[in-house]
Simulated assay, not measured.
Amino acid sequence: MSIRLGYQMPNYSYGTPVAQLFPTVVAQAREAEAAGFDAVFVMDHFYQLPGIGSPDQPMLESYTTLSALSGVTDRIQLSAMVTGNTYRNPTLLAKTVTTLDVVSGGRAVLGIGAGWYELEHQQLGFEFGTFSERFARLDESLSIIVPMLRGERPTVDGRWYRTETAMNEPRLRDDLPVLLGGGGEKKTFRMAAQYAQHLNIICNPDEIPRKLAALDERCAEVGRDRSTLETSYLVMAVVDESGDKARAARDEHMRRTGVDLAAMDPERRKSVEARQFVGTPDDVAAQLQERVLDKGVDGLIVNMIANGHQPGIIELAGSTLRTLVG
């Protein structure tokens, strides 16, 4: 597995009737594949997230969506960004992602994290627990899922989960990759070092050197060769042939979520814009090279929340960003 350039869809509010929603998703996946992206990611949520939209905005169930996308694409890898561990029993999740791998011809990636969106848990009846409890559950869950992906039959009598020689058949392969996402230098990075093939790092760009140093430490602690763990950075980009149009699209998206950049004091605006990459493809590529890739991260997972659903935008971005990551 290698994911040097991924495309994430965090948003299904395209201004279309519901009947046209999934065709718009398909069009993005196909365009990403044609543009040379390595993987396409969808959200594993049931409500839209704060900062992106209101909870009642459209949100498709992730694994149903990914399975459908497997039938309309040929090469691109398929993953949630990232699966909320709290939403599924680990044995069910192992079976689900393995089935996705079988039906897609070996293109599934298990992206997984601890879960964090309390409103979904409260309203839909999922147990939320404390921050520490969610990470303990993820650790225990991975001790079940990873062996099941590898053809082993784990027996676990844990605090959160119980299995008895759990089987997982059929499997297409025994090396289905695991991706962890997050910025936690102790818990998330330690689990990535122990279980994962890829870590997607979420942080401000100026924090990347510290994050990579912490990851080096976690790998050393578990005796892992750090070079065997691929890394990427989660990017919010707005790209257009016109830089002014890109900035206008970003501003409009933010206004829809209740954020007016023009009204912010300079320090607050700088903080909000720290993880945004906006402009022409060449502008964005230069920003990403200097602020992210030169810091030592292997690849990029990009969402283009403001205009990625518009035909041609993914191709415009991909043709330039592909050259950055090899």
Rank of each mutant, 00 (worst) to 15 (best):
G158N: 01
L78H: 07
V82S: 05
L293H: 14
S62A: 15
K295A: 15
S132L: 12
T155H: 03
D260W: 06
A306T: 08
R210Q: 15
D225S: 12
D101L: 02
L293Y: 13
T83S: 15
E207P: 02
L321N: 05
V109K: 02
Q287D: 11
F126G: 00
T24G: 08
G15Y: 12
A306R: 01
M167L: 14
D139I: 07
L124P: 08
Y87I: 04
V103F: 10
T96V: 10
G36F: 05
P90Q: 03
Q287G: 04
L212N: 09
V239G: 01
Q20N: 12
V278G: 00
R159T: 12
S132E: 10
A34P: 03
T228R: 12
Q122W: 07
V156P: 00
V102H: 12
I208P: 01
S54M: 13
S271L: 14
R153G: 04
L212S: 14
G36R: 04
N200C: 14
T64D: 15
A285Y: 03
E152H: 07
L261N: 01
R291I: 10
L261M: 11
T228E: 09
L288W: 04
S132V: 06
T24L: 03
I313M: 15
V103G: 09
R30H: 02
E315N: 14
S62T: 04
E221P: 06
Q28N: 07
L229V: 14
A193I: 07
D101I: 03
D225G: 14
V239S: 00
D157V: 04
G318R: 02
S319R: 15
M1G: 06
V278I: 15
W160T: 00
G326D: 07
D101F: 09
M148C: 12
V18A: 15
M304E: 07
Q122M: 07
Q20A: 13
G182W: 05
M9L: 15
N168W: 06
A94V: 05
R268I: 13
M236S: 12
T130K: 12
D44F: 04
T96K: 02
S143L: 14
S242R: 09
A274N: 08
